[in-house]
Protein backbone atom coordinates (compact mmCIF):
# COMPACT_ATOMS: atom_id res chain seq x y z
CA UNK A 1 0.00 0.00 0.00
CA UNK A 2 2.77 2.32 0.95
CA UNK A 3 4.77 1.43 -2.11
CA UNK A 4 1.92 2.19 -4.46
CA UNK A 5 1.24 5.60 -2.93
CA UNK A 6 4.95 6.40 -3.05
CA UNK A 7 5.04 5.32 -6.65
CA UNK A 8 2.08 7.52 -7.37
CA UNK A 9 3.80 10.54 -5.82
CA UNK A 10 6.86 9.83 -7.94
CA UNK A 11 4.77 9.46 -11.04
CA UNK A 12 3.03 12.71 -10.26
CA UNK A 13 6.38 14.42 -9.77
CA UNK A 14 7.60 13.27 -13.17
CA UNK A 15 4.31 14.12 -14.78
CA UNK A 16 4.53 17.61 -13.35
CA UNK A 17 8.21 18.23 -13.93
CA UNK A 18 9.43 17.11 -17.33
CA UNK A 19 7.27 14.94 -19.57
CA UNK A 20 5.04 17.62 -21.06
CA UNK A 21 5.59 21.17 -22.32
CA UNK A 22 5.37 23.86 -19.70
CA UNK A 23 2.24 25.59 -20.97
CA UNK A 24 0.29 22.33 -20.94
CA UNK A 25 1.22 21.65 -17.32
CA UNK A 26 0.43 25.25 -16.45
CA UNK A 27 -2.94 25.06 -18.18
CA UNK A 28 -3.86 21.88 -16.33
CA UNK A 29 -2.81 23.44 -13.02
CA UNK A 30 -5.00 26.50 -13.64
CA UNK A 31 -7.96 24.33 -14.64
CA UNK A 32 -7.64 21.91 -11.72
CA UNK A 33 -6.56 24.43 -9.09
CA UNK A 34 -8.20 27.80 -9.77
CA UNK A 35 -7.59 28.93 -6.18
CA UNK A 36 -4.01 27.67 -6.24
CA UNK A 37 -3.33 29.57 -9.46
CA UNK A 38 -4.70 32.75 -7.93
CA UNK A 39 -2.36 32.14 -5.00
CA UNK A 40 0.58 31.60 -7.33
CA UNK A 41 -0.24 34.86 -9.11
CA UNK A 42 -0.20 36.76 -5.79
CA UNK A 43 3.10 35.13 -4.79
CA UNK A 44 4.61 35.98 -8.19
CA UNK A 45 3.45 39.59 -7.89
CA UNK A 46 4.99 39.84 -4.44
CA UNK A 47 8.33 38.41 -5.61
CA UNK A 48 8.28 40.81 -8.56
CA UNK A 49 7.63 43.75 -6.21
CA UNK A 50 10.43 42.67 -3.89
CA UNK A 51 13.00 42.17 -6.65
CA UNK A 52 12.26 45.38 -8.54
CA UNK A 53 11.47 47.51 -5.48
CA UNK A 54 14.01 50.28 -6.31
CA UNK A 55 12.51 50.71 -9.81
CA UNK A 56 8.87 50.45 -8.77
CA UNK A 57 8.91 52.79 -5.80
CA UNK A 58 8.28 56.48 -6.40
CA UNK A 59 10.03 57.59 -3.15
CA UNK A 60 12.73 56.49 -0.72
CA UNK A 61 10.85 54.32 1.84
CA UNK A 62 12.89 55.72 4.74
CA UNK A 63 12.74 59.37 3.76
CA UNK A 64 10.94 61.54 6.31
CA UNK A 65 9.13 64.55 4.93
CA UNK A 66 7.50 66.76 7.50
CA UNK A 67 5.60 68.82 4.94
CA UNK A 68 3.72 65.70 3.88
CA UNK A 69 2.79 64.15 7.23
CA UNK A 70 -0.40 62.03 7.10
CA UNK A 71 -1.29 63.08 3.57
CA UNK A 72 -4.42 61.27 2.35
CA UNK A 73 -4.05 59.15 -0.80
CA UNK A 74 -3.73 61.38 -3.88
CA UNK A 75 -1.99 61.39 -7.24
CA UNK A 76 1.35 62.35 -5.71
CA UNK A 77 1.19 59.72 -2.94
CA UNK A 78 -1.04 56.93 -4.25
CA UNK A 79 -1.64 55.32 -0.86
CA UNK A 80 -0.98 58.40 1.28
CA UNK A 81 1.80 58.98 3.80
CA UNK A 82 2.39 58.03 7.44
CA UNK A 83 2.98 60.23 10.47
CA UNK A 84 6.58 60.89 9.38
CA UNK A 85 5.56 61.82 5.87
CA UNK A 86 6.95 58.60 4.41
CA UNK A 87 5.25 57.32 1.26
CA UNK A 88 3.13 54.28 2.19
CA UNK A 89 3.27 52.69 -1.28
CA UNK A 90 7.07 52.74 -1.27
CA UNK A 91 7.19 51.32 2.24
CA UNK A 92 4.76 48.54 1.33
CA UNK A 93 6.73 47.58 -1.79
CA UNK A 94 9.99 47.49 0.18
CA UNK A 95 8.14 45.69 2.97
CA UNK A 96 7.64 42.78 0.56
CA UNK A 97 11.42 42.30 0.68
CA UNK A 98 11.45 42.03 4.47
CA UNK A 99 8.42 39.71 4.52
CA UNK A 100 9.75 37.40 1.80
CA UNK A 101 13.26 37.30 3.26
CA UNK A 102 12.01 36.38 6.72
CA UNK A 103 9.32 34.05 5.33
CA UNK A 104 11.54 32.03 3.01
CA UNK A 105 14.55 31.85 5.33
CA UNK A 106 12.57 30.77 8.38
CA UNK A 107 10.44 28.28 6.44
CA UNK A 108 13.45 26.78 4.65
CA UNK A 109 15.72 26.43 7.69
CA UNK A 110 12.90 25.25 9.97
CA UNK A 111 11.58 22.64 7.54
CA UNK A 112 15.03 21.41 6.55
CA UNK A 113 16.12 20.89 10.16
CA UNK A 114 12.76 19.23 10.79
CA UNK A 115 13.27 17.01 7.74
CA UNK A 116 16.68 15.75 8.83
CA UNK A 117 15.66 15.31 12.47
CA UNK A 118 12.35 13.65 11.58
CA UNK A 119 13.96 11.15 9.21
CA UNK A 120 16.77 10.42 11.69
CA UNK A 121 14.21 9.85 14.44
CA UNK A 122 12.29 7.37 12.31
CA UNK A 123 15.44 5.68 11.08
CA UNK A 124 17.03 5.06 14.46
CA UNK A 125 13.74 4.31 16.24
CA UNK A 126 13.74 2.84 19.74
CA UNK A 127 14.91 4.96 22.68
CA UNK A 128 16.26 7.75 20.47
CA UNK A 129 12.88 8.10 18.78
CA UNK A 130 10.98 8.02 22.07
CA UNK A 131 13.13 10.70 23.72
CA UNK A 132 13.23 12.81 20.58
CA UNK A 133 9.45 12.69 20.26
CA UNK A 134 9.02 13.80 23.87
CA UNK A 135 11.30 16.80 23.20
CA UNK A 136 9.17 17.64 20.15
CA UNK A 137 6.04 17.26 22.34
CA UNK A 138 7.42 19.80 24.79
CA UNK A 139 8.25 22.30 22.06
CA UNK A 140 4.82 21.83 20.48
CA UNK A 141 2.95 22.33 23.74
CA UNK A 142 4.28 25.91 23.76
CA UNK A 143 2.06 28.19 21.72
CA UNK A 144 4.04 29.48 18.73
CA UNK A 145 3.96 33.14 19.67
CA UNK A 146 5.05 32.44 23.25
CA UNK A 147 8.13 30.51 22.11
CA UNK A 148 8.93 33.26 19.62
CA UNK A 149 8.55 35.90 22.34
CA UNK A 150 10.96 34.05 24.63
CA UNK A 151 13.55 33.75 21.84
CA UNK A 152 13.31 37.46 21.05
CA UNK A 153 13.65 38.28 24.76
CA UNK A 154 16.88 36.25 24.88
CA UNK A 155 18.57 37.33 21.64
CA UNK A 156 17.02 40.79 21.33
CA UNK A 157 15.07 42.27 18.43
CA UNK A 158 16.28 42.67 14.84
CA UNK A 159 15.77 40.76 11.67
CA UNK A 160 18.12 37.78 12.28
CA UNK A 161 16.69 37.17 15.72
CA UNK A 162 13.17 37.33 14.39
CA UNK A 163 14.13 34.61 11.91
CA UNK A 164 15.55 32.47 14.73
CA UNK A 165 12.44 33.06 16.81
CA UNK A 166 10.18 31.96 13.96
CA UNK A 167 12.36 29.03 12.84
CA UNK A 168 12.52 27.22 16.18
CA UNK A 169 8.78 26.53 16.55
CA UNK A 170 8.66 25.22 12.95
CA UNK A 171 11.23 22.46 13.54
CA UNK A 172 9.09 20.13 15.71
CA UNK A 173 6.02 20.64 13.52
CA UNK A 174 7.86 19.59 10.38
CA UNK A 175 9.80 16.81 12.14
CA UNK A 176 6.54 15.27 13.35
CA UNK A 177 4.99 15.09 9.87
CA UNK A 178 8.16 13.94 8.14
CA UNK A 179 8.76 11.26 10.76
CA UNK A 180 5.42 9.58 10.14
CA UNK A 181 6.14 9.37 6.40
CA UNK A 182 9.69 8.17 7.06
CA UNK A 183 8.46 5.42 9.41
CA UNK A 184 6.65 3.83 6.48
CA UNK A 185 9.66 4.13 4.20
CA UNK A 186 11.94 2.48 6.74
CA UNK A 187 10.05 -0.78 6.25
CA UNK A 188 10.55 -0.87 2.47
CA UNK A 189 13.11 -3.52 1.37
CA UNK A 190 15.45 -1.09 -0.39
CA UNK A 191 16.46 0.30 2.99
CA UNK A 192 17.39 -3.23 4.07
CA UNK A 193 19.28 -3.59 0.81
CA UNK A 194 21.18 -0.37 1.52
CA UNK A 195 22.04 -1.65 4.98
CA UNK A 196 23.14 -5.00 3.60
CA UNK A 197 25.45 -3.12 1.25
CA UNK A 198 27.12 -1.72 4.33
CA UNK A 199 26.24 1.95 3.72
CA UNK A 200 26.68 4.29 6.66
CA UNK A 201 23.61 5.50 8.56
CA UNK A 202 24.21 9.05 7.36
CA UNK A 203 24.29 7.89 3.75
CA UNK A 204 21.09 5.85 4.09
CA UNK A 205 19.32 8.79 5.71
CA UNK A 206 20.48 11.42 3.25
CA UNK A 207 20.53 9.43 0.00
CA UNK A 208 17.78 6.87 0.45
CA UNK A 209 15.23 8.19 2.93
CA UNK A 210 15.26 11.99 2.61
CA UNK A 211 14.48 12.02 -1.16
CA UNK A 212 11.44 9.84 -0.50
CA UNK A 213 9.85 12.21 2.00
CA UNK A 214 10.18 15.24 -0.26
CA UNK A 215 6.40 15.51 -0.72
CA UNK A 216 5.54 16.23 2.94
CA UNK A 217 8.66 18.41 3.16
CA UNK A 218 7.58 20.60 0.24
CA UNK A 219 4.05 20.77 1.64
CA UNK A 220 5.41 21.94 4.99
CA UNK A 221 7.71 24.58 3.43
CA UNK A 222 4.91 26.20 1.42
CA UNK A 223 2.62 26.13 4.44
CA UNK A 224 5.30 27.70 6.65
CA UNK A 225 6.13 30.68 4.42
CA UNK A 226 2.71 32.23 4.98
CA UNK A 227 2.80 31.48 8.69
CA UNK A 228 6.27 32.97 8.99
CA UNK A 229 5.17 36.19 7.28
CA UNK A 230 2.23 36.40 9.67
CA UNK A 231 4.38 35.69 12.73
CA UNK A 232 6.95 38.29 11.68
CA UNK A 233 4.15 40.83 11.31
CA UNK A 234 2.76 39.92 14.75
CA UNK A 235 6.16 40.19 16.44
CA UNK A 236 6.91 43.47 14.70
CA UNK A 237 3.47 44.75 15.67
CA UNK A 238 4.24 43.95 19.31
CA UNK A 239 7.49 45.92 18.93
CA UNK A 240 9.56 42.74 19.29
CA UNK A 241 10.45 42.16 15.67
CA UNK A 242 11.98 44.19 12.88
CA UNK A 243 12.95 47.66 14.08
CA UNK A 244 12.50 51.13 12.56
CA UNK A 245 13.32 52.47 10.02
CA UNK A 246 13.31 49.17 8.08
CA UNK A 247 10.03 48.95 6.15
CA UNK A 248 8.06 45.98 7.54
CA UNK A 249 4.30 45.60 7.32
CA UNK A 250 3.67 44.63 10.94
CA UNK A 251 5.84 47.49 12.14
CA UNK A 252 3.89 49.97 9.99
CA UNK A 253 0.76 48.99 11.89
CA UNK A 254 2.44 49.42 15.24
CA UNK A 255 3.55 53.02 15.13
CA UNK A 256 0.75 55.22 13.95
CA UNK A 257 -2.00 52.86 12.97
CA UNK A 258 -3.95 52.84 16.21
CA UNK A 259 -3.27 56.39 17.17
CA UNK A 260 -4.23 57.90 13.83
CA UNK A 261 -6.73 55.24 12.77
CA UNK A 262 -9.67 57.59 12.95
CA UNK A 263 -8.19 60.67 11.33
CA UNK A 264 -5.91 58.80 8.87
CA UNK A 265 -7.39 55.34 8.27
CA UNK A 266 -5.10 54.69 5.27
CA UNK A 267 -2.16 54.27 7.67
CA UNK A 268 -4.00 51.39 9.36
CA UNK A 269 -5.51 49.82 6.26
CA UNK A 270 -2.85 49.36 3.54
CA UNK A 271 -0.13 47.49 5.47
CA UNK A 272 -2.80 45.09 6.75
CA UNK A 273 -4.06 44.52 3.22
CA UNK A 274 -0.49 43.73 2.17
CA UNK A 275 0.01 41.19 4.98
CA UNK A 276 -3.35 39.52 4.40
CA UNK A 277 -2.90 39.33 0.64
CA UNK A 278 0.60 37.88 0.92
CA UNK A 279 -0.34 35.23 3.47
CA UNK A 280 -3.54 34.49 1.54
CA UNK A 281 -1.54 33.92 -1.64
CA UNK A 282 0.96 31.61 0.01
CA UNK A 283 -1.81 29.64 1.74
CA UNK A 284 -3.80 29.16 -1.47
CA UNK A 285 -0.67 28.10 -3.31
CA UNK A 286 0.37 25.82 -0.43
CA UNK A 287 -3.03 24.12 -0.47
CA UNK A 288 -2.75 23.48 -4.18
CA UNK A 289 0.75 22.04 -3.72
CA UNK A 290 -0.60 19.76 -1.00
CA UNK A 291 -3.52 18.61 -3.13
CA UNK A 292 -1.17 17.86 -6.00
CA UNK A 293 1.51 16.06 -4.01
CA UNK A 294 -0.56 14.21 -1.43
CA UNK A 295 -2.15 11.21 -3.14
CA UNK A 296 -4.55 10.59 -0.25
CA UNK A 297 -6.17 13.99 -0.58
CA UNK A 298 -5.97 14.16 -4.34
CA UNK A 299 -8.85 11.75 -4.90
CA UNK A 300 -11.25 14.05 -3.07
Amino acid sequence: MVTTSEARVEARFEELSNKRPFWEVAHEFVRKQPLGSAGLAIVALMIFAAVFAPILTPYDPELNSFEHMLTPPNLEFLLGTDQFGRDLLSRIIYGARTALFVGFTAAFIGSTLGLVLGVASAFFGGKFDLIFQRIMDILMSFPLIILALAVVAIFGTGIQNVIIAITIPFIPRCARVVRSSALAIREIPYIDAARANGFSNARIIMRHMVPNVMAPYLIMITAFVGQAILLEASLSYLGLGVQEPIPAWGLMLQGGAEEYAESAPWVAIWPGVAISLAVFGFNLFGDAVRDTLDPKLRSQ
Binding site: G226, L230, A233, S234, Y237, G250, L253, A268, P271, G272, I275, S276, L277, A278, V279, F280, N283
Partner: peptide, 9 residues
Protein backbone atom coordinates in the same frame (compact mmCIF):
# COMPACT_ATOMS: atom_id res chain seq x y z
CA UNK B 1 -8.56 34.41 4.38
CA UNK B 2 -9.35 33.78 8.05
CA UNK B 3 -5.86 32.38 8.56
CA UNK B 4 -4.30 35.02 6.36
CA UNK B 5 -5.74 38.14 8.00
CA UNK B 6 -3.70 38.98 11.09
CA UNK B 7 -6.05 39.07 14.07
CA UNK B 8 -4.54 42.34 15.30
CA UNK B 9 -5.32 44.00 11.98
Amino acid sequence: AGIAIPSFW
